[in-house]
Amino acid sequence: MSDAAIHPSAVVEAGAVLGANVRVGPFCYIGPEVEVGDGTTFGTHCSVTGPTRIGRDNRFIGHCAVGGEPQDKKHRGERVQLEIGDRNTFREYVTLNRGTASGGGITRIGDDNWLLAYTHIAHDCTVGNHCVFSNNATLAGHVTVGDHVILSGFAGVHQFCRIGAHAFIGMGAFVNGDVPPFVMVAQEGYGRPRGINAEGLKRRGFDAERIAMIKRAYRALYVSGTSLDEARVKLVELAEGSEDVRALLAFIESGERPLVR
């Protein structure tokens, strides 16, 4: 606990490991199997139970529940974990659960993510880097989210689904299938594809040629009216000249759940 600043009302159990310049605010609880990296801060009323490992320079604004048991009836107290990377921001009432023994035993969150109020990450999820989850966005168990993904407010993702890199999930959309990289999903009952996330790609430095090729791949997959097998043939052709299309095709080929269509 060297150089950590702990409010007198906070409880830090023996066995917790706090790095340099960690700040623990009023009425927080840090459990005995928790490791916190340098420069991480906890606002008021945060609870962290373990086994949980938290990286450097994370911000937990207040009332966050971190490392809780998985919300899974099959859980019988097995040793399961939560791992959080560096420089993430967790706003008010965010909940982050540990993994399950049957699901790999670990929930992972990467670096530089921004999780707004009331967002929930369930057991065995994997979240990449540079993602934004708006208020009340929710991941059920075993969801995988790539880098630079945006989940708008009140979006929900069904268990075992995958969200590809640079995808955008619109406000209130419910996702019950895999969302390929670059694709936008909008609310209509369950979420349906509505083009590519062109504006987000521009902000991340994708040039017009790359975006045009991704649009061609999207049209082949969703607009052409062909079957998925026929669309795959076209994507294979497009992939010869585009690393982005190759990534999209690899995502499709590696999935176990159906794509959103």
Score class of each variant (00 low, 15 high):
238 L>D: 06
163 I>S: 11
163 I>W: 10
212 A>H: 00
188 E>H: 14
163 I>D: 10
216 R>K: 09
232 R>M: 13
192 R>E: 04
154 F>V: 12
151 L>G: 11
235 L>Q: 10
187 Q>T: 07
201 L>Q: 01
218 Y>V: 00
213 M>R: 08
164 G>A: 02
169 I>R: 05
179 V>C: 06
172 G>P: 09
245 V>N: 03
207 D>E: 03
244 D>E: 07
163 I>F: 11
232 R>E: 13
205 G>C: 07
220 A>H: 04
149 V>T: 11
181 P>K: 00
176 N>A: 10
237 E>S: 05
209 E>Y: 00
252 I>K: 14
157 V>N: 10
230 E>P: 13
150 I>P: 06
161 C>Y: 09
190 Y>V: 15
188 E>P: 10
164 G>F: 01
185 V>C: 01
239 A>I: 07
241 G>Y: 14
147 D>L: 04
203 R>W: 04
193 P>S: 08
186 A>P: 15
246 R>K: 12
209 E>F: 00
255 G>V: 10
248 L>Y: 04
235 L>T: 08
155 A>G: 02
221 L>E: 08
242 S>W: 00
173 A>L: 13
232 R>L: 14
200 G>E: 04
222 Y>H: 04
213 M>A: 12
208 A>F: 12
231 A>C: 08
251 F>W: 15
209 E>A: 04
187 Q>W: 02
158 H>R: 03
206 F>S: 00
246 R>Q: 10
254 S>K: 13
160 F>I: 14
166 H>T: 11
238 L>Y: 09
210 R>E: 05
165 A>E: 06
220 A>P: 04
209 E>I: 02
239 A>M: 07
251 F>Q: 15
230 E>T: 14
215 K>S: 07
168 F>D: 01
255 G>K: 08
254 S>G: 13
158 H>T: 05
198 A>P: 12
176 N>H: 10
194 R>G: 11
193 P>L: 08
183 V>F: 00
248 L>Q: 02
203 R>S: 05
167 A>R: 02
182 F>R: 03
182 F>D: 03
201 L>R: 02
194 R>M: 12
244 D>Q: 03
255 G>D: 06
174 F>C: 15
201 L>K: 03
203 R>G: 05
201 L>A: 04
244 D>N: 04
236 V>T: 11
246 R>L: 07
189 G>Y: 07
201 L>F: 03
188 E>G: 11
201 L>C: 04
195 G>D: 01
213 M>C: 10
219 R>A: 07
224 S>I: 12
185 V>N: 02
185 V>F: 00
247 A>E: 10
181 P>M: 01
165 A>Q: 08
168 F>C: 01
180 P>E: 06
240 E>T: 13
206 F>N: 00
246 R>C: 07
203 R>V: 03
188 E>V: 13
164 G>M: 02
217 A>M: 01
197 N>C: 01
249 L>G: 06
189 G>P: 05
176 N>T: 08
165 A>K: 07
178 D>R: 03
248 L>I: 02
196 I>N: 00
150 I>T: 13
188 E>A: 12
249 L>M: 09
222 Y>W: 04
178 D>T: 03
163 I>V: 12
165 A>M: 08
184 M>W: 11
157 V>S: 10
228 L>P: 15
192 R>A: 04
192 R>K: 09
162 R>V: 11
248 L>K: 01
164 G>I: 01
217 A>S: 05
222 Y>D: 01
171 M>I: 10
176 N>P: 07
